[in-house]
Design a protein around this nucleic acid. Structure first.
Length: 288
DNA sequence: AATAGTCGCAACCGCCAACAT
DNA sequence: TATGTTGGCGGTTGCGACTAT
C-alpha cells in the first residue's frame, strides 16, 4: 500500500517554533480542540506540517505540562517503569503526570543511560534485544547513584520486557474474585488527565490496600500500573518492594531476551503475567 | 578571550497500527 | 477484503548553551 506524505513539505516552516506560531496554535486548539492534525495547520493559518503541530502541542504547549527538573522520585519511578516496560516512553510518561514521552525519553538518553553506563564496571549487565529494530541496548546495573534500584537489579538475570512496537486497543483484566472481565480502551490508559482509569471504567480501585492483594493474587500483576500516578506509587511500599522483589517470585518467568520459547502473549507490550493483554478473540492477536 | 568538546532538548523522520472508505 | 488516511510512537538529529582548556 502506498503511503502518502503527511504533508507537502515544500515551503513549510521547520525548526524551532516562534512565539507567534505557538500562540496561533494555542488559540486554534483552545477554540476548536485538537485532532485532525493534517487539516489543522491550514485552518489555523500555520505554515507547518500537521505532525509538527501535534508534536508542539503535546510536548510543549498543552496545558498541564510540567517543565523543569525531574525529581528524584520521578527518576526512580522512570527507572522502575523502564525496567518493566522497556523503551515504551509513552506508557512511562502516562504514569508521570505532566511529563511527556519526549521529555522522559530525552532524560533517559542523556542522564539515566549515563548513570547506568557509569555502573558498567559491575559484572552484571543487561542486554536487551529490541527485535523490532534488531538493535541491542545495553543496560548496566549496580550504579551507586541508583542504589535503591540496583542493589536488587544487579543480582537478577535480565528481566526487561521486550519492547516490540505493538499496540492494542483493548486491555483484558483477568477477573478477580467476585469481579467481571473488564475491557478498557487503551486510549484511556494513556490519558494522564484521567488518573483513575480502571477504577472509573471497570470497578477496579487500586489503592495501597488493594495493591498487595493484587500482587499476591496468584502472581497476577495485571492491574497495578494502570491507574497510578507518582504520588500513589510512592505512597505504596508494596509497589517499591514489588518492583525490586515481587517479580522474582514467579516460577514461570517468560520475560527473557531472545524471544525463544515465549508464549504467544509475549509479543504484547506488557508480557504476561505482568500485564495480560488479550484481543477480543484469540485469532485477533495484535502482534503482527 | 577564543576555541573545542560536551550536554540537553526541541524537533524531525520513518514506521506501524487503527480507522475509514 | 483491499486500499488509503490518520494519529501515535520510538529513534535520531541538529543546534544552542554550557564547560573545559
Amino acid at each position: 500500500m502506498g503511503r502518502s506524505p503527511c504533508c507537502v513539505k515544500e515551503g513549510l516552516n521547520r525548526g524551532a517554533w516562534t512565539v507567534y506560531e505557538d500562540q496561533i496554535l494555542i488559540d486554534y486548539i483552545t477554540t476548536h480542540g485538537d485532532g485532525k492534525w493534517k487539516e489543522l495547520p491550514k485552518k489555523a493559518g500555520l505554515n507547518r506540517c500537521g505532525k509538527s503541530c501535534r508534536l508542539r502541542w503535546l510536548n510543549y504547549l498543552r496545558p498541564g505540562i510540567k517543565r523543569g527538573n525531574i525529581s528524584a522520585e520521578e527518576e526512580e519511578l522512570i527507572m522502575r517503569l523502564h525496567r518493566l516496560l522497556g523503551n515504551r516512553w509513552s506508557l512511562i510518561a502516562g504514569r508521570l503526570p505532566g511529563r511527556t514521552d519526549n521529555e522522559i525519553k530525552n532524560y533517559w538518553n542523556t542522564s539515566l543511560s549515563k548513570k547506568l553506563r557509569a555502573g558498567d564496571q559491575t559484572p552484571e549487565k543487561q542486554v536487551v534485544i529490541n527485535k523490532s529494530k534488531g538493535k541491542k541496548m545495553v543496560e548496566a546495573a549496580g550504579n551507586s547513584a541508583l542504589s535503591t534500584l540496583s542493589s536488587k537489579v544487579s543480582q537478577e538475570p535480565p528481566r526487561v520486557i521486550r519492547t516490540k512496537a505493538v499496540r492494542c486497543t483493548r486491555v483484558f483484566f483477568p477477573p478477580q474474585q467476585g469481579s467481571e472481565c473488564h475491557h478498557v480502551d487503551e486510549t484511556m490508559i494513556n490519558k494522564r488527565e484521567e488518573p483513575a482509569l480502571a477504577s472509573s471504567s471497570s470497578g477496579f480501585n487500586c489503592t495501597p490496600s488493594t495493591l498487595s492483594s493484587i500482587i499476591q493474587a496468584d502472581g497476577d500483576y495485571s492491574n497495578f500500573l494502570t491507574d497510578l500516578d507518582i504520588g500513589e506509587l510512592l505512597s505504596m511500599p508494596d509497589f517499591l518492594q514489588f518492583c525490586s522483589e515481587g517479580i522474582d517470585h514467579q516460577e514461570n518467568d517468560n520475560v527473557i531476551m531472545d524471544g525463544e520459547d515465549l508464549p504467544w502473549f509475549s509479543d504484547y507490550p506488557f508480557s504476561a503475567p505482568y500485564e495480560i493483554m488479550l484481543p477480543e478473540s484469540t485469532d485477533d492477536r495484535c502482534n503482527t
